[in-house]
Design a protein around this nucleic acid. Structure first.
Lengths: 249, 249
DNA sequence: AAAGATAATGCATTATTATGCACGTTTTAA
DNA sequence: TTAAAACGTGCATAATAATGCATTATCTTT
């Protein structure tokens, strides 16, 4: 029996019982307790079990991988993403902001889609790196850890020098009168710059972002070419936007 | 029986069992264990199997989620990372290259460690973003998708302007005579620049990178302040490095 | 088809890993 | 507090792996 098999065997034991016992395992597998102890040590070092005097317990809450991002309201965001696909054109130069709505959108982009995409979001970049035909340019800078985007003068400087066909922009809040507003000052500055650099502005927003105001204004409704939500464009919840002349999808 | 047939035969074995055994295969095919081992090595290098002492396992359906990175030889890389921790100092300015060895290292950095870290690797940045006291600066540029690092003139330009205390550098290959060499031209240029910008150079390498040569030279052994491997510094496998005066850890 | 070049294989040697045992230390429970 | 049980460490041994080298097989080119 190979060591790895034994390790697997031990881990499987936890399906039957909460605790495994050093001696029992040694007897069952007909090997020395020393070997079981060494196995325990290795499994412990991998963070899989917790050693106790006489045996071991399974570690339950194995802190889930930091790399997998939890998307709240993913179903709604997928609807938004699906609708937004119609704004994609092959060969475009695209600016993509961060946020989980944009991330859901990026997951839906056809695998062989070809374009040049600028982004300042780490998760978005990870996602888009799966697309072989997308030329991906990451805008560097100081990392803002909560949003997983880069900020600072370097980001603004890069953006000031580029020209894009379209910007897919996620939002903190969207209001009929205030337009697009942001929670953080730095991100608001950067988004302004992104909008400046782009011909068309497509806003991706789930309905919970609608009719809210944040301290820092990014741009007015008039500058936005399309607002994509999971709601029907005729939904009463966004009638005020329709009345104000916003292009809803 | 051709080598390719044998490889296919081995892979087919996994349909019957979870593992294959080196000796059993040698007996069944009536060839030497050496050949089976060489087959295992080749299949391992293709990422198809995982070698263990006494046999091999099939590599399971590789990460459905693009965000979780599969680290081959993680155990060895963890040993390297553990040793490398002793080179960290609070408050340093650090340059961190990419690669899974460096990623393993970053996972081991104490959560409250405080420093300024520059990197051009997406996964490394994702990992380090978990550390609240690390000021993380991502070096932007065009994304090279296989290595998940940024390349291009922008990267070089940023690096030419900074000064770091230490650079933790992963390698393609490390050779006594050639020193540090890289597979890709662009990355070799960038690593040169990183070395230029740093006072101390710490090389992190598992033993499989040792005694190999790649087309693009990065720097000689004399510029390297420490080579950290999973082996003992006195191991005969790296005796030639010790003889050449390299500082092994 | 033959000669030379290249790759594959096996063998001998050395290195590494896994395992059990002995023995001293730590932990548990009465 | 004490004795038994469990643990950790160093060591010896055996199994497995890696490496260099010689040999054999395969491919290329003429």
């Amino acid at each position: 029996m190979l060591k790895k098999e034994r390790h697997q065997f031990i881990m499987d034991k936890f399906k039957e019982a909460d605790k495994v016992n050093t001696i029992d395992l040694a007897l069952e597998l007909e090997i020395s307790e020393d070997t079981i102890r060494r196995d325990f040590n290795e499994l412990h070092n991998k963070g899989l079990i917790e050693k106790v005097y006489g045996g071991a317990f399974l570690v339950k809450d194995k802190s889930r991988n930091i790399f997998d991002i939890n998307i709240v309201n993913e179903d709604k965001k997928i609807i938004v993403g699906q609708k937004a696909l119609s704004f994609l054109r092959e060969g475009q130069v695209i600016i993509m902001t961060g946020g989980t709505t944009n991330l859901s959108f990026c997951k839906l982009i056809p695998i062989d889609f070809s374009a040049t995409i600028y982004t300042y979001s780490l998760p978005i970049a990870m996602q888009l790196s799966q697309h072989p035909n997308i030329e991906l340019i990451f805008i560097g800078g100081k990392l803002q850890k909560n949003a997983m985007v880069t900020v600072g003068i370097d980001v603004v400087q890069v953006l000031s020098k580029i020209k894009a066909d379209v910007c897919f922009i996620g939002v903190s809040s969207l209001d009929v009168n205030q337009g697009l507003t942001e929670m953080g000052y730095e991100v608001s500055i950067i988004k302004k710059e992104m909008i400046n650099a782009s011909d068309k502005i497509i806003v991706l927003a789930t309905s919970d972002k609608i009719n809210g105001k944040m301290p820092h204004k990014v741009c007015g409704l008039d500058r936005i070419d399309a607002i994509v939500t999971e709601l029907s464009p005729t939904s009463p919840r966004i009638k005020n936007f329709a009345d104000a002349g916003a292009r809803l999808f």
